[in-house]
Amino acid sequence: MSWQVSGRNEVPHSAAPLVWRKSKACASNACVEVAEQANEFFVRDSKSPMDSAVLSFDRAAWAGFISGLRTGSLEPS
C-alpha cells in the first residue's frame, strides 16, 4: 500500500485531465473531491481545489481507507 502528497493541485504522471467528484451529501464546499485514474485515487480539498495539495493512493491503500471509514476503525479514540 502506498500514498503520497503532491504540491498545489499537482497530479504526478497524469496524462489525461482528472474528473473530480464529491459526495451528493456535501451541502457546502467543506468537503473533499475524489478522482480516479488507472489504479490511483486522488483526493483534494473542495474549498480551494486549484490551490490545495493532492493526496494520491494506490488501489490497496484506497480500499483500506474506505474499509476503515465503513467499519468506524478510523474514528479518533
Results as ranks from 00 to 15, higher is better:
52 S>Q: 02
23 S>G: 06
26 C>M: 08
13 H>Q: 14
3 W>P: 00
38 A>D: 12
4 Q>W: 09
22 K>F: 12
31 C>R: 08
55 L>C: 03
65 F>C: 04
27 A>R: 12
31 C>L: 07
9 N>L: 00
8 R>P: 04
28 S>C: 09
16 A>E: 14
52 S>R: 04
34 V>W: 09
64 G>Q: 14
56 S>T: 13
10 E>M: 09
28 S>W: 06
24 K>Q: 14
77 S>E: 15
76 P>V: 01
24 K>V: 11
72 G>C: 07
60 A>D: 15
41 F>T: 13
28 S>I: 04
3 W>T: 09
37 Q>S: 15
75 E>F: 08
75 E>P: 02
49 P>A: 11
64 G>S: 14
36 E>V: 12
13 H>C: 10
70 R>T: 04
75 E>R: 13
57 F>T: 04
24 K>P: 11
68 G>L: 06
75 E>Q: 09
73 S>C: 06
69 L>E: 04
6 S>R: 11
42 F>D: 01
45 D>Y: 01
66 I>S: 02
40 E>K: 05
38 A>Q: 12
63 A>N: 15
62 W>I: 03
74 L>F: 10
44 R>S: 03
41 F>D: 00
55 L>Q: 04
48 S>G: 11
41 F>C: 02
32 V>P: 05
40 E>M: 08
37 Q>I: 00
50 M>C: 03
25 A>Y: 14
61 A>H: 07
72 G>H: 13
73 S>V: 12
8 R>H: 15
34 V>Y: 08
